[in-house]
Computed example of a mutant assay.
Amino acid sequence: MSSSLLRATYGALSAVVSDLAPEEGWQPSGCAGWAVLDLTLHLVDDARRGLVALATPAGGPATSDAVAYWRSWQPTADQDADVAWRTRVRASVAGGFPELAAVYAELVAAVGVAAGRVGPGELVGTQGHVLRAGDVLSTLAVEAAVHHLDLVAHLDRPGPPAEALAEVRRVLEGLHGGPLPAGWDDAAAARRGTGREPLSDADRVGLGEAAARFPLFG
């Protein structure tokens, strides 16, 4: 994946974060159990992951790629609850949106520079995996795009760029092993493929036995 797509994805999300008002911090997000402020802190954490990954050369061979990375991302309900609780504690003392927005803008700008300096085929390490840098950029863009949908789920703000949602769909179809239903637009595919939106009865009929594997990652 190109660094320009990641910069566009991060830029759109950073613009939303910078526009949030203090009173919107405790609005619900599309990420179950997380308020908007909680999710914003998580966005900071993920941008920091990207910066560290792109500055962490690794020996080969690659142990994962842009699709396989997500296969291990299937947290249990207890793990989800624990992360939500710890994030809420940290978010409550994080200084609010002005501080988080400034930190996020600084981090995503730095990630964009780092992404442009690393060749897409270079191997880097992140979260115990070894991936090509281009695949790491995909994981960052996918997470940012899905969380952009989460962030604006109950707010009157623009969603992620179309090309970012297209990358989410590409990864979900890789996990699914084939095309997702043609009737799903890319935003619906992102929400249903990650369990943010339940499958309808018609979806389950169309997916057949594959419906049991949803969400494809959480």
Rank of each mutant, 00 (worst) to 15 (best):
A94R: 06
A182V: 15
S18A: 15
T194H: 04
P179M: 05
S14I: 09
P215A: 03
A81G: 08
A189K: 04
L172N: 01
A144W: 05
T63L: 03
A47M: 07
V103M: 09
L123C: 08
V16M: 02
T139V: 13
G11M: 04
G206M: 10
F97H: 12
L123Y: 07
A53S: 06
V108T: 14
A210H: 05
F214H: 01
R90A: 12
A202F: 14
F97D: 02
D65I: 08
G195E: 03
W85M: 14
G206K: 05
D186M: 07
Q127P: 07
A144N: 05
L137W: 10
A166K: 11
G177K: 04
G30K: 00
G195F: 03
L149Y: 07
G134C: 00
G59H: 12
L37T: 10
V67A: 01
Q79E: 15
L149A: 06
S92Q: 10
S3C: 12
G96Y: 13
S138F: 05
G134M: 01
V36K: 00
P120A: 03
T40M: 00
R170L: 13
D45A: 09
V146D: 00
V113I: 13
Y10E: 12
A190K: 00
L54C: 09
L100D: 01
P22G: 05
E122Q: 08
D80Y: 11
W184C: 04
W73L: 15
D156H: 14
A114T: 07
A145Q: 00
G60C: 08
T76H: 08
A153S: 14
A187N: 07
L207F: 12
P61T: 03
E197H: 11
P158K: 05
G95K: 02
L5I: 03
V16T: 12
P215V: 00
E23Q: 14
G50Q: 01
C31T: 05
A190I: 04
L20A: 01
F217G: 04
V168K: 03
W34A: 04
V152F: 03
V136I: 11
A94M: 04
G218Y: 09
V111S: 02
L41V: 15
